[in-house]
Design a protein around this nucleic acid. Structure first.
Lengths: 195, 195
DNA sequence: CAAAAATCGTTTGAACCCAAACTATACTTC
DNA sequence: GAAGTATAGTTTGGGTTCAAACGATTTTTG
């Protein structure tokens, strides 16, 4: 990736492209760099640590959540891992086939699904997490501890803003014009009524 | 997402899980928050701005790169957008079918593919980018301009570290033990030689 | 100038991704 | 307690994602 230089140049080009329209460049740079950093970090960790263990990033995150929180209801794992419940179904299927995860029915509420690590899953995390953290340390090694805390704090502000006010904002933006349906997604099963 | 609280609690639980093994918590928090913020920001922008235009995040980024840089060789667009060349092929197919992008053969080098926006694509970006930037401003609205610059700067350090030293690091980690093949991916076409 | 090496974009396969539709179970209300 | 409502996990469909394999083309080498 030549990538970084270009963000600064790009800002000038955007200015030229939009002339009068005022653009908030620092805000643009924050969002662009968040995404760039996320991609770079994920790719490094996948290739340096996870691939050897036959895991993807998402698989590892889900495993990590279960490792830290112990046996949990499926919906909490999805929320904590930051993926949709539909995605979790597939990820759990994969992890289960690798023997790292157990699925149990909730004894009291038949709708709920309990997830937990197998012994193999526990052992895997005890082995892999220190390596994972070593690479987290590598990717942040240009920053000292204070800079890391400041960086994490700034990012936390972004997350909190979206979590606390994002939904209201989206509703306000779309206003009357109801939510645009997704282009993809399941189709309603055709009823018997023909035109 | 209840998400944020848990990161602090999680650190304590990790401590307990790993006992003696020293974990760098600030580094863990940085990586976790980068990814959380990237997911939150992407989701907000997709739902607030892009879905109305029938675009995904990646589609928008690719469009943005072509808008800013003008007609470009395919490989440069992929690099600049931060996606693999294989992914770009599919994204371009989608954008082309929406009439936003043109594909041209390079006149001198038959291997190269030139990409550029159509008039419709140009118009789309002029309309949508201000809305996009308004949401970038929304998600960062808890930070003042200086904090934004500091945040972008910190993230840039992470990206640079991975870009400049990541590959060497990965090679050093795997050392003699050659690269682990991916679980997925194309299979070698079977040759006629049978066992 | 033909064989070999390099480079580009495309195809492939497994996995991931979301949201809407759907099924199953639980709770509410009359 | 049957009908209606709510909630949880699964399926579906269009799409994205990567890396390796691959075909087409260009450059390099002998």
């Amino acid at each position: 990736m030549s990538g970084q230089r270009s963000i600064i140049e790009a800002e000038k080009l955007v200015e030229a492209k939009l002339g009068g329209v005022p653009i908030h460049h620092e805000r643009m740079a924050v969002v662009a760099n968040i995404y760039r950093a996320a991609t770079a970090v994920r790719q490094h960790l996948e290739n340096a640590v996870l691939r050897g263990g036959g895991l993807t990033w998402t698989g590892f995150v889900v495993l990590w959540v279960m490792w830290i929180w112990g046996e949990s209801e499926s919906r909490h794992v999805a929320e904590e891992a930051g993926i949709s419940k539909g995605t979790l179904t597939g990820v759990i299927r994969t992890l289960e086939s690798r023997g790292l995860v157990k699925r149990t029915r909730h004894p009291a509420d038949g709708r709920l699904l309990l997830l937990s690590l197998t012994g193999e899953g526990e052992q895997f995390m005890r082995q892999v997490f220190p390596d994972f953290n070593a690479e987290e340390t590598f990717v942040t090694s240009r920053l000292d501890d204070d800079a890391c805390r400041a960086l994490a704090g700034g990012l936390r502000q972004v997350v909190l803003q979206v979590e606390e006010h994002g939904e209201a904002r989206r509703l306000a933006l779309l206003d009357g014009a109801g939510p645009v349906p997704r282009r993809s997604g399941r189709r309603r099963r055709p009823t018997g009524e023909a035109g």
